[in-house]
Design a protein around this nucleic acid. Sequence first.
RNA 1: GGAGAGUUGGCAGAGUGGUCGAAUGCGGUGGUCUUGAAAACCAUUGACCCUUCACGGGGUCCGGGGGUUCGAAUCCCUCACUCUCCGCCA
Length: 423
Amino acid sequence: MLSLQLIRDKKDFVAERLSVKNFDATGLLNEIIDLDKIRRNTQSELDNVLAEANRISKSIGQLYKSGEADKAEAAKSRSVELKEQSKLLSAKLTETATLLNKKIVELPNIPHESVPRGNSDQDNETVFEEGKLPNLPDDALPHWELAAKYKIIDFDLGSKVTGAGFPFYRGQGARLQRALINFFLDEAIAAGYLEYQPPLLINEDSGFGTGQLPDKEGQMYFVNEDNLYLIPTAEVPITNIYRDVILKESDFPIKNVAYSNCFRREAGSYGKDVRGLNRLHQFDKVEIVQIEHPDNSYDTLETMKEHVANLLRKLELPFRILRLCGGDLSFTSALTFDFETYSGAQKRWLEVSSVSNFESYQANRMKLRFKDKNGKTRLAHTLNGSALALPRIVASLLENNQTPQGIKIPKALQRYTGFDMIK
RNA sequence: GGAGAGUUGGCAGAGUGGUCGAAUGCGGUGGUCUUGAAAACCAUUGACCCUUCACGGGGUCCGGGGGUUCGAAUCCCUCACUCUCCGCCA
């Protein structure tokens, strides 16, 4: 969430910046300013009432001790009056504060100044492209047909046992999954990230902290019996490690990596976008998360981008990097770069990673702070990125590397798969 | 799943109705001493909100929420979590 201070000081600036996300905030901002005024006035009134009540309560004890019971009784009745007042004021305060908070949370993060205006993925800016696009014969197969041909991924079996979007990986397919996970984890560890294995279910507070709740609960699976959500990404448990934490400046940089299954309901998706591995309800992902000093977060974002780019180079996949436009930027992000690999048989670019700086937006929601050199408590910055999401990587690998003899495994991966060809 | 015990400041740990935001110890920070360091000694050491140009003043917080009372860390209810024993189990 945005800080109230920023909204108070620079309302017009906030409105202008949010318009880049095609978000008209003017009405909401005015409501927030008004509620804030009411809240502060109410707080002051309540404080005064409580201050008097405290004084009186203390005096009552004294009065009884010194035998002035009649005075004590008088003080008591005044105290009862004050209590009535404080009840009313405190109810008003809670109500106002709750509403205020609800409104602030409705504001998305303000985009970084480099974010281009735009409405959809059509307006994203390609900032980098590398690698040669594969030159496949006309009869090249899309990955779902390759998966069937080599019996390495079984979508129908998944439908039978669970439902659409929950495939089985089999034989060399299963081994390839395991290889990619280990490869990604090893690369991250070599780059200085600390490995975590997070819980796959999270509570409501965690969902709120990273911004999935309250608005996007429809995207998560919910376990009603225990009031827990299945994680849509390891970002949620890993970032929430630092919820309600005050770090020391010397704790930076915090670099964590986690492999996890990810669960997404993906309600409303259809068509070619969901064919095969393109969009699943359960998939595997290695996620990197960093907590940073505000001064360094954009340098860190560059470093994370470079890490992801190197993974794709080692996998010998052609890729490009997009700077997301305002309209395509997520609610919580200030700046996001998407990585896409080219999938030769489908002849389309597939998003395989998303690297974002959330600045203090998540940190403010989850009260993730640090003490700076002057002893002042400030909000930290959070960042994360996929490094990488498996399914579309597998799709690209299968399609681009298909040969009449089988599917070639990139060199960097062979020591993890134990084979150089799927046949 | 059954029975019981617990949750206090960065940590350990006292406190069972009034002067307790909270003893004490450890840790942290600053200082004295020292060539330097250690030890010793002295001081200081939470978060949040309102108010003030500032100095300062006021308020809230002893797991979360609610209640009793003039007054709650202390009593009651409730939820969460932790621990112990029993049961079950990868």
